[in-house]
Structure formats: structure tokens, C-alpha cells
Simulated scan of single mutants.
Amino acid sequence: MTIDRRKIILGAPALLMACSGRKVSSYEGPKVTSIMAFKGQRKLYLLNGNRAIKGYDFQLGFAPVGHKQFEGDGKTPEGTYLIDRRNPRSNYHLSVGISYPNARDVAFARAHGKSPGGDIFIHGTPKSVEGRKDWTAGCIAVLNEEVEEIYAMVGDYTPIFVKS
């Protein structure tokens, strides 16, 4: 019996979810090639090329205007990043990591004698904050059912463009 490398790679997220006890739907549609998040509109789109496959409303950090500069500022980063990790055991249902801070973010914060912060994710929403506006510490929060879709649809190294 031969093992198909692609099946292993594509099946790994489902295996992780099975071990964590959380359900993630499988996704068989067009590949998500990028993500666009518009902070002012609170809209996130999963794209295949220039075509939106799926859209979501979201909540931001508690200080939603402007680019994240320092740890604890409550802002959500703006710019171009990558999805660089996933957490099936997130305190926020599920989460996919955003590669903030980049080298420019680190240099800016250090020049001001501060930390840029980190641990920025697209994640779910605990029941205790459902319906609240802009409650995160700088992350992008969607509903739990929606983060399950995002987790299944978005691969690591997918670019994410966060605009004001």
C-alpha cells in the first residue's frame, strides 16, 4: 500500500481536530489564495484570485483605528501578512495565526523602546462577549461556526491583506 503525501497533508488538520475534540468541516471548493480584511467595514473575504468565495463580519481590537504598533495598544495590524500557524486548542474556539509582527513592525517598536506585541489571530468568539463590539486585544474575531469554516478553508502561508 502506498501513502499519498497529498492525502496526509490535507488530512492533517482534520486529524488534529479529531484529537482536540472540536469539529471542523472539510472543504472541497476552490483554493483560498488570499484573505482581505477591511477594518472600517468589519468585513473579511476569502478569495480565489480576484473572486470572493466567502465573506464574514468581524470584531477587532478594543482600539480599532490605526495600525498596531506596540504590545497592549489594542489595535489590529494593518498591512500584508501570512497565515503562519493554527491552534486547534485555542481559548477562542479555533484560531489561525497572522504573522504579525514583521521586521518593519519590530524595528518601529524597538526604535520607540517598546515591544511590538504578537499572538495576532483570526479566531472565534466566546459566549461571554457575543454581541460586544471590538473586544479583542488586536485579533480579528468571527463567530465560532465561521472560524470553523475559515480553519478548514485557509491553508498556511496564505497571504492576508488588512486594510483600514
Score class of each variant (00 low, 15 high):
V106N: 00
R6E: 14
A137E: 00
D119G: 00
T125N: 01
R5W: 14
Y157S: 15
I122H: 00
P126I: 04
F121C: 05
G138C: 11
A18H: 03
P77T: 06
N48D: 08
I140M: 09
P159H: 10
Y27T: 00
N144C: 03
R85I: 08
H123Y: 03
K68E: 10
A18E: 11
V162H: 02
W135C: 08
V147T: 13
K7R: 10
A18L: 08
K133N: 09
G61T: 03
N87K: 07
I35E: 06
F161Q: 15
V142P: 06
H93L: 05
C19Y: 15
P13E: 03
G124T: 01
N50H: 11
A14I: 12
I83W: 09
E130Q: 12
V147H: 10
M1F: 09
Y27D: 01
A12Q: 15
L94M: 13
A52M: 00
N87P: 06
K68M: 03
K127M: 01
Y100D: 05
A63D: 09
S34H: 11
D4V: 12
S26D: 12
P13M: 04
P13T: 06
S115C: 08
S95E: 08
F58I: 04
G79A: 13
G55V: 10
I160Q: 00
G29Q: 09
G55M: 08
D119W: 05
I3P: 13
H123N: 00
G11I: 10
M153Q: 03
V142D: 01
H123G: 04
Y157E: 15
V154K: 14
K23I: 12
F70N: 00
Y56R: 03
R86F: 03
I35W: 05
E145K: 13
V142Y: 06
G29N: 07
P64W: 00
K39N: 01
D119A: 08
L82D: 07
A141G: 04
P126T: 04
E148T: 04
G21D: 06
V106R: 05
D57I: 09
I160V: 07
H123A: 00
R86W: 06
G97F: 10
F38N: 14
V147W: 10
N91I: 06
D156E: 14
E28M: 00
V129M: 11
Y92F: 05
G97C: 05
S26G: 12
Y157I: 11
I8D: 04
I83G: 10
Q69W: 02
G79F: 14
G49C: 11
G79K: 15
A111N: 11
L10A: 13
E28H: 03
K23E: 13
R89I: 12
G117N: 09
I9M: 02
T80K: 04
P13K: 07
A52K: 01
A18I: 01
V24A: 05
G138T: 11
R42T: 08
G117E: 03
T80F: 02
G155M: 09
A37L: 08
T158A: 10
A103M: 12
K114H: 14
L16G: 13
N91R: 08
K163A: 12
P77K: 10
P101N: 06
I98V: 14
V147M: 15
H123V: 02
H67K: 15
T80D: 06
N91Y: 02
Y157T: 14
